[in-house]
């Protein structure tokens, strides 16, 4: 298991660099979570956790000085913790997925602070790059640029390594001890979470009379579904 944690931390840390380097969406939770699931042998858990995290902070964008929670790191962390803690079962249950999602999402704010600190630490590198520019040393600028990328990768991988181990311990210690009514509540929440996430997405749409338009489209879709069933 230790080797798997190391592997996922390194690959996850590398893929999360896409948030700032290439930005080709490999780091979006709905992509990176199934990829993590694929590496650990259960794509389905990755798809579910990825779909939840994709929408949870969809209204938070990295614009100007605003830094959103790092949902990519969280996606790798939750999926890995679930699958490595749960590897004695054939399939991860809805209850344990919901449980892990609900207890680990506050860690998004830790990743947000971490990203903010990384961005602030880059200011020091910019200063060094400027010194290199003043002495006409282009290699100095390249070095600072590469140091920024390597440092981000190292911090991400270290975060994943520690958080996955802690995550596994929490799931293994807490989940088997949950009483039946908590499991039923988790089962219900598995169905309720998407409704809340749809509301989060709706709040990103800046058009007038969003709610009436949404309700009208919802009812029309329902009628169409009913008609399809009838015929």
């Amino acid at each position: 298991m230790f080797l798997k944690v190391v592997m996922v931390s390194i690959i996850g840390g590398f893929l999360c660099l896409d948030r700032t380097c290439l930005q080709v969406m490999l780091s979006r939770p709905v992509v990176i979570a199934p990829l993590t699931g694929f590496l650990l042998g259960d794509v389905l858990t990755g798809l579910t956790i990825g779909s939840f995290l994709e929408l949870l902070w969809i209204d938070k964008q990295q614009i100007g000085i605003s830094v959103p929670p790092n949902d990519s790191l969280l996606a790798v962390m939750i999926v890995s913790s679930l699958l490595l803690a749960n590897n004695q079962y054939e399939q991860t249950s809805h209850e344990v997925m919901t449980f892990a999602f609900l207890i680990f999402i506050p860690m998004g704010y830790i990743t947000q602070k971490m990203d903010t600190a990384l961005i602030q630490s880059n200011e020091g590198l910019s200063e060094k790059a400027l010194q290199a520019a003043k002495v006409a040393d282009p290699g100095g600028i390249t070095r600072q640029h590469i140091i920024a990328i390597i440092r981000t990768f190292a911090v991400y991988s270290l975060f994943l390594f520690i958080s996955i181990i802690v995550g596994i311990m929490i799931i293994e210690a807490a989940f088997p001890r949950l009483p039946a009514f908590v499991l039923k509540a988790m089962s219900l929440m598995y169905l309720v979470i998407p409704a809340v996430l749809i509301a989060v997405c709706l709040s990103t749409v800046k058009i007038r009379r969003t709610v009436p338009i949404f309700c009208a489209l919802f009812l029309v879709t329902m009628v169409i579904i009913e008609l399809i069933h009838a015929f």
Partner: peptide, 13 residues
């Protein structure tokens, strides 16, 4: 993508 992935389809990503 999330709606498709939630249904368990690998086409989501």
């Amino acid at each position: 993508a999330a709606a498709i992935a939630y249904q368990g389809s690998v086409w989501g990503p």
